[in-house]
Computed example of a mutant assay.
Amino acid sequence: MTGIRITRRTWLIPAICLAFILFFTVFGERGLLRIYEMRQEKQRIEHTVADLRIENQKLRSSIEALRSDRHQLERIARKELGLVRPNEVIYQFPPSGSK
């Protein structure tokens, strides 16, 4: 009988240790789940960076157009600031559908 109890204890202690190690391998701070989450976050950040690079390039193109193209600058000044040339007449109409 005592030989059977020793055998059970012999298997129980390594089994508990193995379960402990597996738990932290999967769920620990540096476990498999955390690694998966970090990879997902890395992909989201890389996507955001790619979008920001595209937007940055568009803004650089706009800046270059404003520096080199006087017509572009005039168009924006007229549209956004409402500027007009001397002796120009501006006609303003009410929005359609209003009385």
Rank of each mutant, 00 (worst) to 15 (best):
S61W: 09
I35D: 12
S68A: 01
D69K: 04
H47Q: 13
R67W: 07
S98Q: 12
G28E: 04
F27R: 10
A50W: 06
L73R: 11
E55N: 09
K99Y: 08
R85L: 00
F23E: 07
L66M: 15
R60V: 02
E46W: 09
I63V: 08
I4F: 07
R5G: 02
S98I: 08
S98G: 04
E46D: 15
S61Q: 14
Y36G: 07
E88W: 01
G3K: 06
S96W: 10
Y91F: 07
Q72L: 02
E55A: 11
I6F: 13
R70I: 07
I35E: 12
L83K: 09
F24G: 01
T7M: 05
F24R: 06
R70K: 13
E29H: 13
F23S: 13
T10I: 09
L66A: 11
R30Q: 10
M38A: 14
E80L: 03
R44C: 10
K99R: 06
N87Y: 09
R9K: 08
E46I: 01
Q72V: 00
A15D: 05
V49H: 03
V89P: 06
I13F: 14
G31V: 03
K79F: 05
A19L: 07
H71P: 02
K42N: 15
I45R: 14
R78T: 01
R44W: 14
F24L: 00
A19Q: 05
E88K: 00
E55D: 14
T48R: 12
I90C: 08
R34V: 04
N56Y: 15
S98W: 12
L22E: 08
L59W: 14
N87D: 13
A77T: 01
K99E: 12
L52C: 02
T25D: 14
H47V: 03
P95N: 08
D69Y: 08
G82W: 03
L83S: 07
T7C: 01
I4V: 03
L66D: 10
I35V: 10
R78V: 01
S62G: 11
D51A: 11
I45K: 13
K58C: 02
T2P: 06
Q40F: 10
H47E: 13
E64S: 03
K42T: 14
E29D: 12
S62H: 12
G3L: 05
L12D: 09
I90Q: 13
D69T: 01
H47W: 04
L33M: 05
G28A: 03
L66Y: 10
Q57A: 11
F27P: 02
A50T: 09
R8S: 08
P94R: 11
G28D: 04
M1W: 04
A15W: 01
A15K: 02
E29S: 12
R78F: 00
R44V: 09
I6W: 13
